[in-house]
């Protein structure tokens, strides 16, 4: 196998492979082994030399392209614009990790509490039934589930948290709108 083409994906045509290797050589991205192999090919094969010359011309052409220049007033326009704005506080400053950990701890406690409560209410001595599910949903009294002080308190807390979140979001949007 040729060391130049060992690492190429299957399906590459020879000419494309040659171009890819030559571009890597021109860009200075070849390994030492590849460099010496390409230099050998350039000495030995006119086809490689011709392609190298062609690619080098394109490379030099691109290198000589100049950057586009905006209008003379560009910097002044930007500075006029930012004069009306404030630098936003760094994200890491307003996202306090303690708050995130606090919220996570709250939800974990709630989930564990519910699980504990549910498990404590289970009748472990029950022998089960022939039904696959084992529960007769028609006999479940849903009104009792939502008539519990703990559940009601939890839902009220969630609503308050949701309203606080909405308030913060709308406040932020208002600030952005005023800044614009």
């Amino acid at each position: 196998m040729d060391p130049l083409f060992d690492n190429l994906p299957p399906g590459h045509e020879f000419e494309e492979d040659m171009e890819l290797r030559l571009w890597e050589y021109i860009d200075g991205l070849s390994t030492d082994q590849e460099r010496s192999a390409i230099e050998h090919m350039l000495v030995e094969h006119a086809e490689w030399r011709a392609k190298y010359k062609e690619l080098l011309e394109v490379h030099r052409g691109i290198e000589e392209v100049e950057l586009e220049q905006p209008s003379m007033r560009f910097t002044r326009n930007v500075m006029d614009e930012i004069a009306r704005l404030q630098i936003a506080p760094a994200t890491r400053n307003y996202i306090n990790k303690n708050i995130i950990y606090g919220i996570a701890a709250f939800f974990i406690t709630v989930i564990v509490g519910f699980l504990g409560y549910g498990i404590s209410q289970m009748e472990w001595s029950s022998t089960g039934s022939d039904s696959l599910v084992g529960v007769d949903f028609s006999s479940v009294d849903y009104s009792r589930m939502f008539n519990n002080n703990f559940v009601n308190g939890f839902m009220v807390l969630n609503i308050i948290l949701g309203l606080m979140l909405l308030d913060r979001y709308l406040g932020q949007r208002k600030k952005e709108w005023q800044a614009a």
């Binding site: 586009e68 905006p70 209008s71 560009f74 326009n77 930007v78 614009e81 930012i82 704005l85 404030q86 630098i87 936003a88 506080p89 760094a90 994200t91 890491r92 400053n93």
Partner: peptide
């Protein structure tokens, strides 16, 4: 349009500079 976009890029970068 490009100048308008370029201006917007610098304004955004300024706003987010603390990041």
């Amino acid at each position: 349009d490009a100048e308008e976009v370029a201006q917007d890029i610098f304004v955004k970068a300024y706003r987010a500079l603390a990041d």
